[in-house]
Write a protein that binds this DNA or RNA. Structure first.
Lengths: 199, 199
DNA sequence: TTTAAAATCTAACACTGTTAGGCAAAGTTA
DNA sequence: TAACTTTGCCTAACAGTGTTAGATTTTAAA
């Protein structure tokens, strides 16, 4: 019977509707505001219906995570074609990764557990900026006088911070627990940036 | 009256109790499991009492964030004393930052919005590992044959990923919106690592 | 000892994820 | 067509969440 197929297709449709409704809510109000009843409202159903498509709320997030990884891989594959040398391809793939994170900000957040809290608080409290200032000043100190300007030091500061914070985040979310590699990556990165400042 | 002071001290005590109870719960069950009633249970009060010390749940998290930054600054200051050269001091401060993140994992999480989701899911789904594999293979390709071993490529992969993911996280949580600096940091970092692989 | 104030509680509201049970429409079989 | 089964979807509920209002008890001041 063809009606079976049609029904199957309708079911698949609402499954996709649930996913895109969830993503829409995240885009509009953030992941914290996502609720089963809100999703149900968007697709003109009541909340319990969702449980016929997904085991629970977490399963929705997991599926969106999976979709995110698939989309990211596609983007990277396309980027890879833009260059012929392996070095160029690698760089293009990382740029694709970068662009994906901002083009699909909400997907990236759910994929890698990046929350947005304390958004406005940063400017308010002086305690918050002290560690940054300490590092900033020290970087300024080791920067040769001829290129000692705010923009340069900012750049170096963020490079430092990115490596260290990135490595920490990866460890905290994925618990790699590969102690040796961490140590070496960290030391590599830090001394690398320090050298790039000095010469 | 000295009793006023004593009462003041008691109030300050329960304020600190609320904070340390919250941190304890986060350590035991994670931030998601933190609730006002659980905090109240730990300090032998009922939930509404907490609102005489903090405006709401978010205010507790904000205060813990502040405490985190203060503690981090202290650690970094101490680390700074361990070296005499500015380069050594800078490295020591970043190491202190690194160590802080793991010694006070829960504080770091609340400070920088690092969540732990999809912990176990990573091994299950092949879609999840495809982007990583693509990059890994490409790094292997540009690695000179004499040092082409798993450990070396792992190290380079994590160095790459750390910078890029770190920079993204910083942007997503703090919305710096300093386009030029981002671009330069990213390009600096990527080409830097690529060069470090090739020579 | 009475009165004022402070500390603390209970009860409730509106929300959350999730489950159980029922009702009505649709499909299947006799 | 009639009876029966399945499916789709809903309402109601449970236990939990953050938060507030109001009553109640405890403490301090007169």
């Amino acid at each position: 019977m063809a009606s079976k197929d049609r029904i199957q297709k309708l079911k698949e449709d609402t499954r996709l509707n649930i996913l895109s409704a969830s993503l829409d809510i995240a885009k509009e109000e953030g992941w914290a505001a996502l609720s089963m009843r809100k999703i149900a409202d968007k697709i003109d159903y009541t909340a319990p219906v969702i449980y016929e498509y997904f085991a629970n709320k977490d399963a929705i997030l997991r599926e969106l995570t999976r979709i995110g990884y698939v989309k990211l891989a596609t983007r990277m594959e396309e980027a890879c074609k833009l260059s012929t040398t392996p070095e160029g391809q690698l760089e293009a793939m990382w740029l694709a990764y970068w662009n994906f994170a901002f083009a699909y900000k909400e997907l990236y957040q759910v994929m890698y557990g990046v929350e947005m809290n304390c958004c406005t608080a940063l400017n308010e409290c002086p305690d918050y900026s002290k560690p940054m200032n300490m590092l900033w000043d020290k970087i300024e100190e080791i920067t040769p006088p001829e290129r000692r300007n705010e923009e340069y030091i900012d750049r170096k500061y963020y490079t430092f911070w990115s490596v260290v914070h990135g490595l920490i985040s990866i460890n905290l979310t994925n618990q790699l627990s590969r102690e040796e590699i961490n140590r070496e990556v960290l030391r590599d990165a830090i001394t690398g940036v320090i050298n790039s400042i000095k010469n």
